[in-house]
Design a protein around this nucleic acid. Structure first.
Lengths: 101, 101
DNA sequence: ATCTATTATCGCAAATATACGATAGGTTTA
DNA sequence: TAAACCTATCGTATATTTGCGATAATAGAT
């Protein structure tokens, strides 16, 4: 990417909303989150069984959702229990709701 | 991208939501849409003046928003007036609202 | 200490996305 | 017809994303 300008500064809300949207911008990640909404929580392995994707790929999607703050992982050795991050979920919900008027 | 499986089939809502989210997944596009919400409509040139981006770059972002169905262009020669596509806007609004519960 | 189970990370390949300048296209005006 | 105006598209460069298999890491069980 050629950038003549180091970085465009947007309003904080704009950046935050875009980051959430980007994390939601893949059907697998939407499906993962829908799954988490139903089950409330689940393990990586459960998701690997649900989707016809390699374990590493599922793990990567989970990482992105975690980085975006939409989910969080809790150690339940030897597994990891993933749940929706309620605080950021509410934030995302309100940002989208405000955005759409 | 290596795909062992041609294509994963998700629920239609999931695909649609992901497509909207992907279109919203860039701060410039969020900012463009916010601008359109305020102004109700505007021309490409107006946006080029607002953002420190090349005309071709702005045009490309507009194209993506148009492809996603979030905006529509109306010919007002020699300009093009872009407005929010109200029908899809409502659809996106409700998909996001339902998704976030 | 070793083995097992589970998940994350690394390294790679291919596809997409982002940005730019240059150019083409379409419409009005001169 | 030609010139001017506005916008889209092309070509290109670089960055990011998506996916896989292989490997590392972590914690409990043997």
């Amino acid at each position: 990417m050629k950038r003549s300008l180091e970085h465009i500064e947007y309003q904080e809300d704009t950046e935050t909303l875009a980051r959430f949207a980007k994390a939601l911008g893949h059907p697998t990640r939407i499906a993962i989150l829908k799954h988490l909404e139903n089950q409330s929580c689940c393990f990586t392995g459960d998701l690997v069984d649900v989707f016809p994707l390699a374990q590493s790929t599922v793990s990567q999607h989970l990482k992105e959702l975690k980085t975006a703050g939409l989910i969080q992982g809790e150690l339940k050795p030897p597994k990891i229990k993933y749940c929706i991050n309620q605080e950021n979920w509410r934030l995302a919900k309100s940002l989208f709701a405000n955005f759409f008027d």
